[in-house]
Design a protein around this nucleic acid. Structure first.
Lengths: 252, 252
DNA sequence: GATTATGCGGCTGTATACAATCATTGCAAC
DNA sequence: GTTGCAATGATTGTATACAGCCGCATAATC
């Protein structure tokens, strides 16, 4: 089959993407978004052949996309056993959130130094978009946009390695939120993002960092990363190691 | 050709590697080490076919290895134009070193909390090995081992995302050292590493961090990241954008 | 003589065929 | 009824064939 142009599933998930993008980027982005928006639950198997069928490309492309996703930690690649959507354990979640605090602090400081007015404008637009998403109840897109806000901020910090690390942390955080968010669901108050931008715009690094840290506290407090001490629910305890299975499963 | 066992070039570059490791890892490690030990200079082209011939594997494997290396920033993957050994610009170098300070601080604090005596033992052994390398004048292996020390430390910090980020930063730092190190070449004093271990072993996080930061200062001071203001040497200025060429090149 | 076409060689991008591996299921033995 | 084993099916790991792109070199033109 010579690379049929058919089956092109929906246009690019979001508007802003280069025209020169290659196939892999398209596939990568689609799977990525699907995971972050929870259309693919943690633990879901990602068969190369199936995905190849869906996107109309060969396994080669899918494989590369999965490899990238694995590098970012949103997909787990088990040798000879295929790929699954990652489901961070409570301990992993703590590590990720800890790392993220460090990075967010650094990024905030740098952004307060280097952010251009264009970038600040872009950030404000993004907050509005995020606000709209939550207003109309699109939780998945909200989580994703909230993540993209932090990514845009990282861009403003002008430090490539930090940006790339942040990308991986934000992705994984989104996964954690999707997995562990408590019943409150009030959510990443766009208001916090908004005030953060104000502080950065006025070049007040200290205040910006303080806001960011309290923002992080907020996120942590909404998660239910219990004490991990025997919840009694086996299903829950082994969720990070369990395969997904069709509802009616037989024990043996 | 069914995967000829021939051409297996030298055993694994270092002793400690799992038996279950796949071909990939072997190729990856070889190229990685070659770059860090400067047997492959920045800018060198890495042809898939050539490498495949050398290691006796197909381009598929080489491609994966190169992709991993690109993720870590030691290889630059130019679409349709092949891979080259990365040569960080002065600005990129600064970003990397900045990020590294952040990470090293965090890692040092965590290591002071969590390092086990086994890990401390391993660190001390590593410092000795490093010492021997410099003693017998093996600069390449010295740089590599010095990097591995910082990686082992990151392991002791028990934070997977930080470890993986550190891996990428250390690799790139090695590249920077190889590229920009001044004439002094006195080098990453193993003594500093040694005293750092002492501080961590005595759980004195504050002192450990102070030592680490002065260690970072030391590294910075040995680099010649000039003011970047017209060094006059075009070759140098455009090194990050320039193709490598055989010595006898004609202008047009 | 300088500048722009054009053909050629080498290399990468993609798809696919084949081999190896793992998980599952059914059967036999205890 | 449970446990261990072997065949089977599905899925990934690897190699390779083919197509397309890039850059260089030669050749043609102004």
């Amino acid at each position: 089959m010579p690379m049929s142009e058919s089956l092109q599933p929906l246009a690019s998930p979001r508007a802003t993407r280069s025209r020169t993008e290659t196939q892999d980027d398209r596939v990568y982005a689609h799977i990525f978004d699907a995971i972050l928006e929870q259309r693919l639950a943690p633990g879901t198997r990602l068969s190369e052949e199936t995905l190849g069928g869906i996107f109309g490309v060969s396994r080669t492309i899918i494989r590369r996309a999965l490899s990238r996703l694995a590098h970012e930690g949103v997909v787990l690649l088990r040798p000879n056993r295929g790929a699954v959507v990652a489901s961070p354990s409570v301990d992993e979640a703590r590590q990720i959130l800890h790392a993220r605090r460090l990075v967010e602090r650094a990024i905030t400081e740098l952004a307060a130094l280097h952010a251009t007015s264009d970038q600040l404008e872009g950030l404000r637009r993004m907050v509005n978009e995020e606000h709209e998403c939550f207003a109309r109840g699109d939780r998945g897109a909200g989580i994703r946009l909230s993540g993209e806000f932090h990514l845009k901020l990282a861009e403003a910090a002008r430090n490539a390695p930090l940006l790339s690390f942040q990308r991986s942390l934000v992705s994984q955080t989104s996964l954690i939120i999707a997995q562990y968010e408590g019943p409150s669901r009030s959510h990443c108050s766009y208001d916090e993002h908004s005030r953060l931008i104000d502080a950065i715009a006025s070049r007040d690094a200290e205040r910006a960092v303080a806001l960011m840290m309290s923002h992080m506290d907020h996120i942590d407090s909404k998660l239910e990363l219990g004490e991990d001490a025997g919840s009694g629910d086996l299903q829950q305890v082994f969720s990070h190691v369990m395969q997904e299975r069709p509802p009616g499963r037989k024990p043996r």
